[in-house]
């Protein structure tokens, strides 16, 4: 199974928080900007692709035991949010790429391996 580190190196993304947890396996991915949709549909161990950057994304990722959050469109959470992510053990990645291309590249990378 691929890890967060594999995604960082293959998707040209940067690690914004949780750099000590990149060996965590990624079981699949879910793309959505609606928090309740993620709460209802994302599965444990999945990567969450979103454009949301506010502090509540930490609670969603942590409560659902998601492997990491990948923020698209160059979005950056504020320092307080990143510090909370770090202390809660939530990994946040960021990419300048848009949502569609990010999902496409991830799908190619994970096809046959993850619960896509």
């Amino acid at each position: 199974m691929i890890t967060i580190a594999d995604i960082v190196s293959n998707l040209n993304s940067s690690v914004l928080a949780g750099s000590d947890k990149l060996q965590r396996p990624v079981k699949g991915a879910y793309a959505s900007d609606l928090l309740s949709d993620v709460m209802g549909k994302a599965r444990e161990g999945e990567l969450w692709i979103t454009m949301q950057t506010h502090k509540n994304i930490i609670a969603v990722a942590s409560l659902k035991d998601l492997s990491a959050i990948l923020i698209v469109n160059g979005g950056k959470p504020d320092e307080d949010t990143l510090a909370t992510a770090q202390s809660e053990g939530v990994v946040i990645l960021g990419t300048e790429a848009r949502s569609f291309s990010t999902c496409g590249r991830l799908y190619k990378l994970m096809e046959g391996d993850a619960l896509v």
Binding site: D33, L34, L35, S36, D37, M39, G40, T50, Q52, N56
Partner: peptide
């Protein structure tokens, strides 16, 4: 902010 999807109660 991504709240208000209308899925809270069903979740």
């Amino acid at each position: 902010m991504g709240f208000g999807a209308g899925m809270g109660l069903s979740n």
